[in-house]
């Protein structure tokens, strides 16, 4: 009884309050309202960005992360593309046909060697760079 009282006194309730509920619900619904971007559009954009970037660098597909964040009334696309290796020279641009877009970011130049990669980003880079494309 007394311990319960003390706990309430100093720690407050442990359950999430309705105030916390409403705040988290609002934040989610507002991020969607503000972005107003369909999942299909988002997926198409993600594919094309990965396609372009992987012409120049080799991306770690496991660690890919795309999300929309809204903060201080500005919506930003936060894309985290961990880079495995820098390519020696960019892959040729894909031809106009979009039947089979270059979905596979694991493209690799045959002559790629370890020494070149060490000049740029290496596998063990602890914090992969963020690409911030503000909308």
């Amino acid at each position: 009884m007394i311990s319960d009282f003390l706990e309430r006194l100093f720690l407050g309730q442990d359950d999430t309050t309705s105030r916390d509920n409403v705040k988290s619900r609002l934040k989610i619904v507002l991020a969607q309202d503000r972005a107003n971007l369909s999942p299909e559009m988002m997926e198409a954009m993600r594919r094309e960005i990965v396609e372009v970037v992987s012409r120049y660098v080799e991306i770690d597909t496991e660690g890919l992360n795309f999300c929309l964040e809204s903060d201080q009334r500005a919506t930003a696309l936060i894309a985290n593309l961990p880079i495995r290796r820098i390519k020696l020279e960019p892959d040729p641009k894909p031809l106009a046909d979009t039947d089979t877009p270059g979905l596979d970011p694991q493209l690799e130049l045959p002559g790629m060697s370890a020494s070149e990669s060490s000049r740029g980003f290496s596998d063990d880079s602890s914090s992969p760079p963020d690409i911030d494309l503000s909308l």
């Binding site: 407050g12 309050t17 309705s18 105030r19 409403v22 705040k23 609002l26 934040k27 201080q72 009334r73």
Partner: peptide, 19 residues
Amino acid sequence: MVQANDMMSVHDVQEILAI
């Protein structure tokens, strides 16, 4: 109600709307 954590505070609302 704000004290009882049953209503958003002014600060909560202002932080969410950011104006």
